[in-house]
Amino acid sequence: MTRNLITPDPGSGNGSPPLLEIWNLKVHFPDDAGPVRAVDSIDLTVREKECFGIIGESGSGKTVLCLAILGLLPGDASFSGEITFKGENLFSMPSREIRKIRGKEIGAIFQNPATSLDPVFTIGDQLSEALSRGEGFSKAEVNTNLIHLLNRVSIQDPALRIRQYPHELSGGLRQRVMIAMGIAAEPSLIIADEPSSGLDLRIKRRIISLLQDISQNATMFIVTHDLELAEKLFETLAVMYAGEIVEISGCKEFFKAPMHPFSEGLLNSLPSRGMQPIPGSSPSLTALPEGCRFFPRCRYAMEICKNKHPELFSLTGERQVRCFKYA
């Protein structure tokens, strides 16, 4: 079983012990056409104070990976493997223990604040609940800290905002409220699912700047298809395709020279690199190819790729890639 053992540049803070480790994680869902293999044999390591990112197309399994870490998988999901946080396997914990960790030790920033925020409660009510998860916070202290928390995420007129309901806020403000909820209890790890999705360019760049500030003092695990966010924020990144990891790399090295053909295609689709789309479409997660899952779309495909599934090969410089070009 291959694991992420990247050693980033000195000074990045990644020489610290692992905070989150994922071993051979599989998450499948039932379907009439066969099991949907949303997450398929994933191994990752995230270290303290690291900003670790997952990038990939929509439907590649990124959000399901987040839900698995947070213990929020739907009831019909079948899963196996291990997710270890601070040395303890989350899958072996009772539900009540997971609920204690979620929010207090592991914060969450969900991708759609319009549906994640409760429309019948004010912003202040919802932030108060998030603040109360922090150890040692009394009700009076929660009320005192509301204004400070909104100031921290650059929300103006916080005294007004805490009395408002979600529908009264703009999309950018709602996203900042979601970020405030995610960091309220000062968790050790923050999971963010598409934190810049659906925002216009100006608001998106404000959110990126805010996440950069937060990442200076917290471990972050972010999934996105936004390559601008990835390039500006991540220290280490993994590329997901059709439920599995196809490349792991330091962020600077990745954007300088992507190794997997899918990674290369992602970067070539950027306007700054010619806006060349990747031909074809991702395979169905109920009918994955026998060989390389990217084979039908790959311009470098060889005969072996059609019939044999590649492992995640370790390369010089601690990079890893799932491609027979580097076998």
Rank of each mutant, 00 (worst) to 15 (best):
S249G: 03
S249M: 04
S249H: 02
S249C: 06
S249Q: 06
G250V: 09
G250A: 15
G250Y: 00
C251N: 09
C251L: 09
K252G: 05
K252F: 03
E253P: 03
E253W: 00
E253R: 12
F254V: 12
F254W: 05
F254I: 13
F254G: 09
K256M: 13
A257W: 01
A257D: 15
A257P: 06
M259V: 10
M259E: 11
H260I: 13
P261Q: 14
F262K: 05
F262Y: 15
S263G: 08
E264N: 12
E264H: 05
E264M: 12
G265C: 11
N268A: 15
S269R: 10
S269H: 10
L270P: 02
L270S: 11
L270E: 11
P271Y: 06
P271F: 04
S272H: 13
R273M: 09
R273D: 00
R273C: 02
R273N: 07
R273E: 05
G274P: 05
G274S: 14
M275H: 09
M275V: 03
M275G: 08
P277M: 09
P277Y: 12
I278P: 07
P279D: 12
G280V: 11
G280N: 11
S281W: 01
S281T: 12
P283V: 06
P283W: 04
L285S: 01
L285R: 04
T286E: 13
T286P: 05
T286L: 14
A287R: 14
A287H: 06
A287Y: 00
P289C: 14
P289W: 03
P289M: 15
P289S: 13
E290C: 03
E290M: 07
G291E: 05
G291M: 08
C292S: 08
C292R: 08
R293H: 08
F294L: 04
F294I: 02
F294T: 02
F295Q: 13
F295D: 01
P296E: 06
R297W: 00
C298S: 11
C298E: 06
C298H: 07
C298N: 07
C298T: 07
R299I: 00
A301T: 07
M302P: 01
M302E: 08
E303M: 07
E303K: 10
I304L: 12
I304M: 14
I304K: 15
I304D: 09
I304G: 10
C305Y: 01
C305R: 08
C305E: 11
K306W: 02
K306V: 00
N307K: 14
N307P: 00
K308H: 07
K308W: 00
H309T: 06
H309W: 00
H309I: 03
P310Y: 05
P310S: 03
E311S: 12
F313R: 06
F313T: 05
L315A: 03
L315C: 02
L315I: 03
T316L: 05
T316Q: 13
G317L: 10
G317F: 06
E318C: 08
E318K: 13
E318Y: 08
R319L: 10
R319G: 04
R319M: 07
Q320H: 14
